[in-house]
Design a protein around this nucleic acid. Structure first.
Lengths: 141, 141
DNA sequence: GCCGGTATTGTTATGTTATATCATTCGACC
DNA sequence: GGTCGAATGATATAACATAACAATACCGGC
């Protein structure tokens, strides 16, 4: 999947990059860079230094395969890397999982505010929601 | 203003806390914690250690006088600390200023998505917009 | 095949942001 | 004045991220 997209785009999904992406898939949760470093370390026997992972992350983010959760300093795979999108992250404070949702209406409102009220030129949006997911929220009585 | 609110609430705006708040007002921009430390240091002659400033920030955030911009690791005064509100930050990548805007509609959409699509219980929202402000955006031809 | 240029990775060091921990001081109240 | 809890001081260290330069891999043309 990511391999295909990379081929189309003429960029390379090298071993290091693929490994980081795989780790994030396996984890299923937002994961810190240093946790990735440690895991990679264990799998590779060779030392893995921070720049290795940060460079891979940078690449994966640029290509849209991974998002950074700013409020967590953590990284998570994107569920639809094939197209640009305006997404919202719902992050469970309890179990740590994050859900990614697309909602153009939110992006549109933000852009509307930016244009009409501020004359602000939007280049990117960070929308992260804290709370508890369905599993971690006790049912209403 | 902040003093009054603190009295009402039965909490104390101590010297350290007031100083940090003042610095943020004077700065007018999102400001990093270590920049605050340095400035405080200069004004106080005595050494100012990180926990001092981080504790003050924590207090000010809890009281709603200050917001943290997660995408910047910076802190900025709140423009209406007297009431709870759902706000959006527009952060200029060029000059660094941030504008705070209230828009219930965005919060409502987010909550709607959370409830209807995910069964997610929202406790907080981070909405930060990157881009360039009116002053820093070249006029359209 | 080989050469040369570009992209990628390795390595070391360091910068930046944030917190844990425990000792000390301050301030309100009895 | 003594006591208790809140706040601060001080030291150390954790957690997150990047700069800089050397070494290597990859890919085109020859």
């Amino acid at each position: 999947m990511a391999t295909l997209l990379c081929n189309e785009r003429g960029v390379k999904l090298t071993a290091a990059r693929r490994q980081v992406l795989e780790l994030l898939w396996e984890s299923g949760c937002p994961t810190g860079a240093y946790e990735l470093i440690e895991t990679l370390q264990q799998r590779n026997a060779r030392p893995v230094n921070p720049p290795t992972v940060y460079r891979a992350l940078e690449f994966l983010i640029t290509q849209g395969f991974v998002h950074k959760l700013e409020s967590r300093n953590a990284y998570v795979v994107c569920i639809h890397p094939d197209r640009r999108h305006a997404c919202i992250f719902f992050i469970c404070a309890d179990c740590g999982v994050s859900a990614e949702l697309e909602d153009e209406r939110v992006a549109d409102l933000i852009d509307e505010d930016a244009n009409d009220r501020l004359g602000f030129h939007v280049t990117g949006r960070v929308v992260e929601v804290q709370g508890t997911c369905r599993q971690c929220t006790p049912a209403e009585p």
